[in-house]
Amino acid sequence: MPTITVYDAMAQALAEEMRRDARVLMFGEGVATKRPELVGEFGSARIRNTPLAEGIIAGTAVGAAATGLRPIVDLLFAPFLCYAMDELVNSAGKLRYLSGGQFEFPLVAISMTGAGWAVGSQHNHNVEAWFAHAPGLKVVMPSNAADYKGLLKSAIRDDNPVLFFVDIGLLYQPGEVPGGESLVPLGRAAIARPGHDVTLVSYAKTVAVCLQAAEALAATGIAAEVIDLRTIKPLDEATVLASARRTGRVVVVHEASRTCGVGAEVAALVAEQAFDHLKAPVRRVTGPDVPPPASYPLEQAFVPGVDAVAAAAKALVRKPH
């Protein structure tokens, strides 16, 4: 299997899907400038730079999606999604329902977020839970190059609006990417490491943190299972619940702030549907409820670390029951 970066895996996905379907096009601030190879192959009608105006970029995608195109928009950094919130939430998410099913909105909105570039909280803010809370949208946030490619391709083929979050910290990380179609279905979590004592549920860059924590836990005789959600909405409830029932202990780990984050949803799901199997309370290890800072050590301190995850897991396993 060839090893390529997340950035290149996404580039492959874009090119393959544009080749496959003439209705797919991509636009955003600097999209054509940054991807000359796509302009070369597909022409400037299908790869476009736009004005600096996220609202109309997103709105144009929504209007185009409803009337026959399959747009991908690059909205750059996740905090800029605030300018596109109306178009994504009120139009893309609601107008299918409000019209009684007359329209579909096959579009992908890509944005970057997460610690890694020391850019501060107006460029780094993990807002995936906001969109998971909005009806009619799907939300994807992969953890490795193969999934970035396979999930981006599936998102482009999906007939619904998909928010595709790219973890900045992973952008240039290499990973093995299979050849061929290599589709990864939306809504399906992956078991990144099997185990039977405790389940670590995560997504994006903290999957790697959980895998390292699982390694450390193994040295102390604790077998941790690591689940990579990959898609946040629709959430793969079956995979999470099956693991929770098997291990009886769940730690949810994400970089996004704690309050009303994805971890709260996973914890509630497990409490509602796997309570009888639990040997300890569900724990969350998350970013704090503060704006992510720029300073490198502060930015690193924001992200859940290996030690914190391992300690949370150990505390659950040691808890007498």
Partner: peptide
Amino acid sequence: LTSTIVGGELSLATGVALSQTLL
């Protein structure tokens, strides 16, 4: 597409027109 978010229709019209043009 009908939007009752004041200005919503303005945000969507460009995409509809883009479809007309490209298709």
